[in-house]
Computed example of a mutant assay.
Amino acid sequence: MTVRTLFDRCRAFQARMPLAGFFSHSTAAVLHGLSLPKALEGDSRVHVSVVAPTRAPRGEGVVGHRVDARPSVVLVADLQVANPVAAWCQTTA
């Protein structure tokens, strides 16, 4: 998946993003320009995290995650995205 397409999909999802939600895992890694592990390179889904007890979002092409603590979040092209270190850790766990 190209970064441009991923940005477009994230912007489209942002309209229904949970209030405290943020893009995470492989989605955040790609938005930060990080390399993905080989096993994740073909994952075109949008990964979104929320802090428990908020219910993780669901939808076609969306993978919801519920985390115990919110990592620091940064803006990438006006998108709330897990910081690069957290994103890298999420892709290698």
Rank of each mutant, 00 (worst) to 15 (best):
Q14C: 01
S24E: 05
R9A: 15
C10D: 01
S72N: 15
V85R: 04
F7R: 09
L6G: 15
G64I: 10
S26G: 07
A29S: 06
E60A: 14
V81H: 06
V76D: 03
A87M: 15
S35Q: 07
S35K: 07
S49P: 07
R4F: 05
V30F: 04
D68C: 11
Q80S: 15
L34H: 11
R9C: 15
R16K: 08
P71F: 12
V50P: 02
R45D: 15
V51N: 02
P53I: 03
S72E: 11
L40W: 05
Q80T: 00
S35V: 13
V46A: 10
V76L: 04
H47L: 03
P71E: 12
S44I: 13
P53L: 03
S26C: 08
R66C: 10
T2P: 14
H47P: 06
E60T: 09
T2I: 13
S35N: 11
V73L: 06
L75W: 03
Q90E: 13
R66A: 14
A93K: 02
H32F: 04
P37W: 14
V67C: 01
S49N: 06
V76I: 04
A87E: 15
K38T: 07
P37I: 09
P53V: 00
G61S: 05
S24W: 08
L75R: 05
L34V: 05
V81A: 01
A93N: 05
F13A: 00
A15D: 05
Q14Y: 03
A28R: 10
L19S: 06
P37V: 12
A52L: 00
R58W: 13
A86R: 14
W88F: 10
A77I: 04
A69V: 01
V30Y: 00
R45M: 13
R4W: 09
V30Q: 13
V50S: 02
G42F: 07
D43C: 13
F23N: 05
G42E: 12
S24P: 00
F23L: 07
D68S: 11
M17R: 07
D68L: 05
V62E: 13
D43A: 15
H25Q: 04
R9E: 15
A82V: 09
R4G: 08
Q90N: 03
V30W: 00
R9H: 09
Q90M: 12
P18K: 01
V30G: 01
H65L: 11
G64V: 02
R9D: 15
V50I: 09
L79Q: 13
A77E: 10
T92S: 10
V50A: 00
A15R: 12
K38C: 07
A39G: 06
R58Y: 06
C89E: 14
L19P: 00
L19V: 01
F7K: 07
A93R: 06
T2M: 12
V50Y: 10
R55M: 04
R55T: 10
L19F: 06
T5V: 03
A56P: 04
A69E: 15
A93I: 03
D68H: 07
D43Y: 15
A93L: 09
G21P: 08
R45K: 13
P84F: 12
F23T: 11
A52M: 00
L79F: 03
P53A: 13
G42Q: 11
Q90R: 01
V30I: 11
V74H: 02
P37D: 12
